[in-house]
């Protein structure tokens, strides 16, 4: 229970930080929104399916942008504010504190994703008609959770470096490319496919397309439920590794005593 209380307090704290400066949502929205627009402009006269394909990718990118920046700055901000050693010396393990922050960021990620979807629908005057609403929502939420676990994995690694900000900026496009957010991954070089398959959001976006597009022809052969299965397995794997990594990072940070260096 004390651990859950730490998570709840961390969640409330993250929410308060967000409401103190809500304009920070803009950077996470602008990139996926512009990228989706670029894709639609490339089509010139996009079909409703093309619009849906692009905005679904934009929605996923919106969620990833938020998760990435939230995890990248999760500990870096504490470094700047001088609160990181207080967090590490608290009796609650770090993973429960980061967990509360991650849950809040995931909720904001939903807002990001939906904003990109709705804005593109309004601009291109295409109604959001998905083939199966409930399967779509399931895939959407699970993809978000998978992104959150991936973000936790990265945030654990970011604790060790003073350059989290640079890494955060650098990881945005690789995930967009690797997950095939805007194009099927079979267009990528064959050697890169295992890397794409190791990313849970790759399966998530495929499941989203299966649920949303009535005649989706480029999907993986495992189908919707196969996508969901791989998504779940990879997400659990990310979570397990990040829990282990946080313990290792905590141990190392205490040993080297350079946590506050920035």
């Amino acid at each position: 229970m004390p651990r859950l209380r730490a998570t709840a307090a961390s969640f409330r704290h993250q929410a308060a930080m967000f409401w103190a400066e809500p304009q920070w949502i803009i950077p996470n929205i602008i990139a996926p929104f512009v990228l989706a627009m670029v894709v639609l402009m490339l089509y010139q006269e996009p079909s409703p399916e093309a619009v849906l394909y692009a905005v679904l990718g934009g929605g996923m990118m919106g969620m990833w942008g938020n998760t990435l920046y939230a995890s990248g700055f999760s500990i870096q901000s504490d470094r700047w504010w001088g609160t990181v050693d207080a967090i590490f010396s608290a009796p609650s393990p770090l993973i429960w504190i980061i967990g509360g922050r991650t849950i809040w960021n995931a909720l904001v990620g939903i807002v990001n994703g939906l904003f990109v979807l709705v804005a593109a629908m309004v601009i291109f005057q295409t109604p959001l008609e998905v083939a199966d609403f409930w399967l779509f929502m399931l895939a959407f939420v699970l993809t978000l959770l998978s992104l959150a676990t991936l973000g936790m994995l990265f945030s654990a690694a970011f604790v060790l470096t003073r350059s989290a900000q640079v890494l955060t900026n650098g990881l945005e496009f690789p995930i967009y490319v690797g997950t095939g957010s805007m194009f099927p991954i079979f267009l990528l070089p064959y050697w890169s496919h295992p890397l794409s398959y190791s990313l849970a959001p790759t399966w998530g976006i495929d499941a989203i397309r299966y649920a949303a597009l009535p005649a989706y022809a480029d999907g993986f052969s495992v189908g919707y439920w196969g996508d969901i299965l791989y998504l779940a397995i990879l997400s659990v794997l990310y979570l397990t590794v990040s829990i282990w990594l946080y313990k290792a990072v905590d141990h190392r940070a205490r040993k080297t005593a350079n946590l506050m260096r920035y």
């Binding site: 894709v39 089509y43 640079v166 900026n169 496009f173 490319v177 805007m182 194009f183 267009l187």
Partner: peptide, 26 residues
């Protein structure tokens, strides 16, 4: 890190849009 940024940023940006263009096939 600076060198990584110098060599990494443009590569993935170009790759993203090149594959999008390939897919859209305008």
């Amino acid at each position: 890190m600076w060198i990584m940024q110098l060599f990494g940023m443009s590569l993935f940006q170009i790759a993203f849009f090149v594959y999008v263009a390939k897919f859209v096939n305008n």
